[in-house]
């Protein structure tokens, strides 16, 4: 390869370090949106829920105890990292997001702004 190629080639990210997207359930009711994400092996102190503008991202690192001198015989989970980003819409109140982590399942509740909650519009008869 020429020198030029070397200069312009940036270090490709290691594919084995690309985080896995956790499986999620997302549903909406009158009050807001609930999101559940499967993040097995992620403890509370290894979980990061971030809000940047309207981008809500969840990230977690899997911790397994006592892996020293362990040899893998079989691995279906190859990347010990989860990450997924969601775009929030305007009617959601990002300042009141509640996060709860239990048994490796992250539950996020994103409430709607009060003015965005559904209300019935009365039809007046003439």
């Amino acid at each position: 390869m020429s020198e030029r190629t070397e200069l312009t080639t940036t270090k490709a990210p290691d594919p084995s370090e690309r985080p896995t997207a956790p499986a999620v359930d997302i549903f909406e009711d009158a009050g807001g949106i609930t999101l559940l994400a499967d993040m097995p092996g992620v403890a509370k102190d290894r979980l990061d829920v971030k809000l940047d503008g309207d981008a809500l991202s969840v990230e977690g690192r899997v911790e397994l105890q006592g892996l020293t001198d362990m040899r893998a015989l079989w691995a279906e989970v190859n990347v010990p990292r989860f990450r997924r980003t969601f775009t929030l819409s305007r009617e959601l109140d990002a300042s009141r997001i509640e996060a709860n982590l239990k048994d490796g399942v992250l539950t996020l509740r994103v409430p709607k702004h009060a003015h965005a909650q559904p209300r019935r519009i009365e039809v007046k008869s003439a």
């Binding site: 097995p40 040899r71 893998a72 079989w74 691995a75 279906e76 048994d103």
Partner: peptide, 28 residues
């Protein structure tokens, strides 16, 4: 098939075989 639930990793130490099943959200 890849993607079955729960995902399983198996490791071996000098004294034991360790099986990890990634099964979140279940009552143990």
């Amino acid at each position: 098939a890849y993607g079955a639930f729960p995902e399983i990793n198996v490791g071996r130490t000098p004294n034991s075989v360790e099986v990890f099943a990634f099964a979140p959200g279940i009552d143990g």
